[in-house]
Amino acid sequence: MKIEIVEGYENTEVIIRCSTATQDIRKLESLLQSFANKLSCTKDGATYLVDVQDILYFESVDKNTFLYTASEVYELQLKLYEIEEVLSDAGFIRSAKSQVINIYKIASLCPDFGGRIEVTMMGGERLVVSRQYAKLLKQRLGIKN
């Protein structure tokens, strides 16, 4: 694979030239799009670009990753750990083994039994932050016990 960086342009542009758009290429596309605060994902066979600010949370079900906005559910190629790495600075945090949430889309928090935190997302959906990840969320928000 040949990579070339050409400086001196006003806008950043990435062109991928390949024989076919394989899954790895799609993954690379998603990762690159995430830097532009957009994620490339699919729904019913069609590809969509979703603004990171519109995403409520990501969930992994049976090794497939899904992205939830207020009104739609999309599938994407990235794994949760990749999303966590790429979107950490954009306000995303792991909330359970199979879930990454957008802090900016949290409407309210309520502690629950066993150190868990119940999160109500904007739009009313309720999610549970497991005890293991509740500590990280509290640290991120600066909450001291």
Binding site: I103, S108, L109, C110, P111, I117, K138, L141, G142
Partner: peptide, 12 residues
Amino acid sequence: TGARYNEMLRIY
């Protein structure tokens, strides 16, 4: 406690 958490979320 939830009210305290929500205040910290708002500040964040």
